[in-house]
Amino acid sequence: MLELKEVQAFYGTIQALKGVTLEVNAGEIVCLIGANGAGKSTTLMAISSVVPVGGGTIAYDGRDITRLATDRVVALGITQVPEGRMIFPDLTVLENLRMGAYLRRDRAALKADEAHALDLFPILKERRKQLGGTLSGGEQQMLAIARALMARPRLLLLDEPSLGLAPIVVEHIFEVITRINTEGTTLLLVEQNAQMALQVAHRGYVLETGRVVISGTAADLLADPRVQEAYLGMDMA
Protein backbone atom coordinates (compact mmCIF):
# COMPACT_ATOMS: atom_id res chain seq x y z
CA MET A 1 0.00 0.00 0.00
CA LEU A 2 2.75 2.43 1.02
CA GLU A 3 6.33 2.01 -0.03
CA LEU A 4 9.27 4.20 0.96
CA LYS A 5 12.54 3.69 -0.91
CA GLU A 6 15.74 5.29 0.34
CA VAL A 7 13.87 8.39 1.46
CA GLN A 8 16.07 11.28 2.53
CA ALA A 9 15.06 14.53 4.18
CA PHE A 10 16.92 17.60 5.36
CA TYR A 11 16.30 20.40 7.81
CA GLY A 12 18.56 23.06 6.35
CA THR A 13 21.90 21.31 6.13
CA ILE A 14 21.09 18.69 8.75
CA GLN A 15 20.13 15.37 7.25
CA ALA A 16 17.28 13.91 9.30
CA LEU A 17 16.61 10.90 7.07
CA LYS A 18 19.55 9.15 5.45
CA GLY A 19 17.65 6.69 3.32
CA VAL A 20 14.60 5.13 4.94
CA THR A 21 13.13 2.09 3.21
CA LEU A 22 9.96 0.55 4.53
CA GLU A 23 6.57 -0.65 3.45
CA VAL A 24 3.10 -0.85 4.89
CA ASN A 25 0.61 -3.39 3.58
CA ALA A 26 -3.13 -2.88 3.54
CA GLY A 27 -4.77 -3.89 6.79
CA GLU A 28 -1.60 -3.79 8.88
CA ILE A 29 -0.53 -1.88 11.93
CA VAL A 30 3.13 -1.08 11.42
CA CYS A 31 5.13 0.68 14.08
CA LEU A 32 8.26 2.76 13.91
CA ILE A 33 10.30 2.78 17.06
CA GLY A 34 13.54 4.50 17.90
CA ALA A 35 15.15 7.08 20.11
CA ASN A 36 14.53 10.82 20.03
CA GLY A 37 15.90 12.30 16.84
CA ALA A 38 16.02 8.96 15.03
CA GLY A 39 13.79 10.36 12.30
CA LYS A 40 10.45 8.78 13.17
CA SER A 41 8.37 11.96 13.03
CA THR A 42 10.32 13.21 10.03
CA THR A 43 9.40 10.00 8.20
CA LEU A 44 5.70 10.67 8.79
CA MET A 45 6.10 14.34 7.83
CA ALA A 46 7.88 13.29 4.63
CA ILE A 47 5.01 10.93 3.75
CA SER A 48 2.54 13.79 4.35
CA SER A 49 4.75 16.08 2.28
CA VAL A 50 5.11 18.58 5.11
CA VAL A 51 8.87 18.02 5.08
CA PRO A 52 10.18 18.01 1.51
CA VAL A 53 11.80 14.77 0.39
CA GLY A 54 15.42 15.33 -0.63
CA GLY A 55 15.96 11.94 -2.25
CA GLY A 56 14.32 8.56 -2.74
CA THR A 57 10.68 7.86 -3.52
CA ILE A 58 7.38 7.38 -1.74
CA ALA A 59 4.74 5.34 -3.55
CA TYR A 60 1.14 4.81 -2.53
CA ASP A 61 -0.86 2.11 -4.28
CA GLY A 62 1.92 2.03 -6.83
CA ARG A 63 1.62 5.72 -7.54
CA ASP A 64 4.53 8.08 -6.91
CA ILE A 65 3.45 10.65 -4.30
CA THR A 66 6.91 11.96 -3.40
CA ARG A 67 6.31 15.49 -4.60
CA LEU A 68 2.56 15.85 -4.14
CA ALA A 69 1.31 18.79 -2.06
CA THR A 70 0.14 17.95 1.44
CA ASP A 71 -3.55 18.48 0.67
CA ARG A 72 -3.30 16.11 -2.33
CA VAL A 73 -1.73 13.43 -0.16
CA VAL A 74 -4.66 13.80 2.24
CA ALA A 75 -7.07 13.61 -0.69
CA LEU A 76 -5.59 10.21 -1.59
CA GLY A 77 -6.54 8.89 1.84
CA ILE A 78 -3.39 9.37 3.92
CA THR A 79 -4.16 11.32 7.09
CA GLN A 80 -1.82 12.14 9.93
CA VAL A 81 -2.30 12.69 13.63
CA PRO A 82 0.80 14.80 14.22
CA GLU A 83 3.05 14.79 17.24
CA GLY A 84 1.84 17.29 19.81
CA ARG A 85 -1.75 16.77 18.54
CA MET A 86 -1.92 20.14 16.81
CA ILE A 87 -5.58 20.59 17.44
CA PHE A 88 -6.97 24.05 16.65
CA PRO A 89 -7.14 25.73 20.07
CA ASP A 90 -9.66 28.45 19.14
CA LEU A 91 -12.04 26.21 17.22
CA THR A 92 -14.68 24.21 19.05
CA VAL A 93 -14.45 20.44 19.25
CA LEU A 94 -17.09 20.16 16.52
CA GLU A 95 -15.32 22.67 14.30
CA ASN A 96 -12.09 20.72 14.76
CA LEU A 97 -13.88 17.58 13.62
CA ARG A 98 -15.32 19.36 10.62
CA MET A 99 -11.88 20.55 9.60
CA GLY A 100 -10.85 16.91 9.62
CA ALA A 101 -13.52 16.30 7.00
CA TYR A 102 -12.48 19.35 4.98
CA LEU A 103 -12.15 17.55 1.66
CA ARG A 104 -15.35 15.54 1.94
CA ARG A 105 -18.59 16.53 0.28
CA ASP A 106 -20.83 13.65 1.29
CA ARG A 107 -22.85 15.47 3.94
CA ALA A 108 -25.07 12.59 4.93
CA ALA A 109 -22.20 10.19 5.61
CA LEU A 110 -20.38 12.98 7.44
CA LYS A 111 -23.07 13.18 10.08
CA ALA A 112 -22.80 9.44 10.65
CA ASP A 113 -19.00 9.63 10.88
CA GLU A 114 -19.22 12.50 13.31
CA ALA A 115 -21.50 10.42 15.49
CA HIS A 116 -19.14 7.46 15.16
CA ALA A 117 -16.12 9.59 16.12
CA LEU A 118 -17.91 10.97 19.16
CA ASP A 119 -18.92 7.43 19.96
CA LEU A 120 -15.28 6.27 20.06
CA PHE A 121 -14.54 9.04 22.55
CA PRO A 122 -17.71 9.83 24.53
CA ILE A 123 -15.96 12.60 26.50
CA LEU A 124 -15.68 14.62 23.28
CA LYS A 125 -19.44 14.50 22.90
CA GLU A 126 -19.85 16.26 26.23
CA ARG A 127 -17.28 18.83 25.23
CA ARG A 128 -18.35 19.31 21.62
CA LYS A 129 -19.07 23.03 22.00
CA GLN A 130 -15.92 23.76 24.00
CA LEU A 131 -12.84 25.30 22.42
CA GLY A 132 -10.14 22.77 21.61
CA GLY A 133 -7.59 24.64 23.69
CA THR A 134 -9.60 24.11 26.87
CA LEU A 135 -9.35 20.31 26.68
CA SER A 136 -6.91 18.24 28.75
CA GLY A 137 -3.95 16.57 27.05
CA GLY A 138 -5.70 13.23 26.82
CA GLU A 139 -8.87 14.77 25.44
CA GLN A 140 -6.83 16.69 22.89
CA GLN A 141 -5.21 13.44 21.75
CA MET A 142 -8.64 11.85 21.41
CA LEU A 143 -9.83 14.86 19.44
CA ALA A 144 -6.77 14.69 17.18
CA ILE A 145 -7.49 11.04 16.40
CA ALA A 146 -11.22 11.62 15.95
CA ARG A 147 -10.48 14.59 13.68
CA ALA A 148 -8.17 12.50 11.51
CA LEU A 149 -10.79 9.74 11.25
CA MET A 150 -13.28 12.28 9.89
CA ALA A 151 -11.30 12.25 6.65
CA ARG A 152 -12.07 8.51 6.32
CA PRO A 153 -8.41 7.70 5.79
CA ARG A 154 -7.31 4.44 4.24
CA LEU A 155 -3.92 4.93 5.86
CA LEU A 156 -3.62 6.69 9.20
CA LEU A 157 -0.25 7.98 10.36
CA LEU A 158 -0.14 8.30 14.13
CA ASP A 159 2.71 10.18 15.76
CA GLU A 160 3.34 9.51 19.47
CA PRO A 161 -0.28 9.10 20.53
CA SER A 162 0.77 8.16 24.07
CA LEU A 163 3.13 11.04 24.71
CA GLY A 164 2.59 12.73 28.06
CA LEU A 165 -0.63 10.89 28.85
CA ALA A 166 -1.72 9.03 31.98
CA PRO A 167 -1.44 5.22 31.71
CA ILE A 168 -5.21 4.72 31.79
CA VAL A 169 -5.66 7.16 28.91
CA VAL A 170 -2.85 5.48 26.97
CA GLU A 171 -4.64 2.16 27.38
CA HIS A 172 -7.86 3.66 26.03
CA ILE A 173 -6.04 5.20 23.06
CA PHE A 174 -4.42 1.88 22.19
CA GLU A 175 -7.76 0.10 22.40
CA VAL A 176 -9.12 2.60 19.93
CA ILE A 177 -6.09 2.12 17.67
CA THR A 178 -6.80 -1.61 17.52
CA ARG A 179 -10.47 -0.93 16.88
CA ILE A 180 -9.75 1.51 14.06
CA ASN A 181 -7.56 -1.16 12.48
CA THR A 182 -10.16 -3.91 12.74
CA GLU A 183 -12.66 -1.53 11.17
CA GLY A 184 -10.46 -1.47 8.08
CA THR A 185 -7.94 1.34 8.39
CA THR A 186 -4.25 0.65 7.90
CA LEU A 187 -1.98 2.29 10.47
CA LEU A 188 1.59 3.48 10.59
CA LEU A 189 2.35 4.18 14.22
CA VAL A 190 5.29 6.08 15.65
CA GLU A 191 5.87 5.42 19.34
CA GLN A 192 8.37 5.99 22.11
CA ASN A 193 6.48 3.44 24.12
CA ALA A 194 7.87 0.47 22.18
CA GLN A 195 6.37 -2.12 24.49
CA MET A 196 2.85 -0.82 23.96
CA ALA A 197 3.34 -0.29 20.24
CA LEU A 198 4.73 -3.76 19.56
CA GLN A 199 1.84 -5.32 21.41
CA VAL A 200 -0.72 -3.91 18.98
CA ALA A 201 1.39 -3.84 15.81
CA HIS A 202 1.82 -6.59 13.26
CA ARG A 203 5.25 -5.50 12.13
CA GLY A 204 7.80 -2.90 13.13
CA TYR A 205 10.89 -1.03 12.08
CA VAL A 206 13.61 0.33 14.32
CA LEU A 207 15.08 3.65 13.26
CA GLU A 208 18.48 4.91 14.31
CA THR A 209 19.90 8.26 13.17
CA GLY A 210 17.82 8.42 10.03
CA ARG A 211 18.10 4.79 8.92
CA VAL A 212 16.18 1.55 9.42
CA VAL A 213 18.46 -0.71 11.43
CA ILE A 214 16.14 -3.58 12.37
CA SER A 215 12.84 -4.74 10.94
CA GLY A 216 10.56 -7.69 11.45
CA THR A 217 7.28 -8.91 12.85
CA ALA A 218 6.23 -7.46 16.16
CA ALA A 219 6.86 -10.80 17.87
CA ASP A 220 10.39 -10.99 16.41
CA LEU A 221 11.18 -7.46 17.54
CA LEU A 222 9.84 -8.12 21.03
CA ALA A 223 12.16 -11.12 21.23
CA ASP A 224 15.17 -9.39 19.68
CA PRO A 225 17.81 -8.78 22.36
CA ARG A 226 18.98 -5.54 20.68
CA VAL A 227 15.44 -4.20 20.80
CA GLN A 228 14.90 -5.42 24.31
CA GLU A 229 18.02 -3.72 25.55
CA ALA A 230 17.69 -0.42 23.74
CA TYR A 231 13.95 0.14 23.58
CA LEU A 232 12.16 -2.12 26.01
CA GLY A 233 14.24 -1.18 29.02
CA MET A 234 15.39 -4.74 29.77
CA ASP A 235 18.79 -5.31 31.29
CA MET A 236 20.59 -8.00 29.32
CA ALA A 237 23.68 -8.11 31.47
Binding site: V50, D71, T79, L91, M99, R147
Partner: peptide, 14 residues
Protein backbone atom coordinates in the same frame (compact mmCIF):
# COMPACT_ATOMS: atom_id res chain seq x y z
CA UNK B 1 -4.18 31.16 11.43
CA UNK B 2 -3.99 28.85 14.44
CA UNK B 3 -1.76 26.13 13.05
CA UNK B 4 -0.57 26.06 9.48
CA UNK B 5 0.90 22.56 9.51
CA UNK B 6 -2.22 21.10 11.07
CA UNK B 7 -4.37 22.95 8.52
CA UNK B 8 -2.38 21.43 5.66
CA UNK B 9 -2.71 18.00 7.26
CA UNK B 10 -6.50 18.41 7.19
CA UNK B 11 -6.27 18.58 3.41
CA UNK B 12 -6.70 22.35 3.34
CA UNK B 13 -5.06 23.88 0.28
CA UNK B 14 -3.12 26.50 2.20
Amino acid sequence: AQNRTAAALMGINV
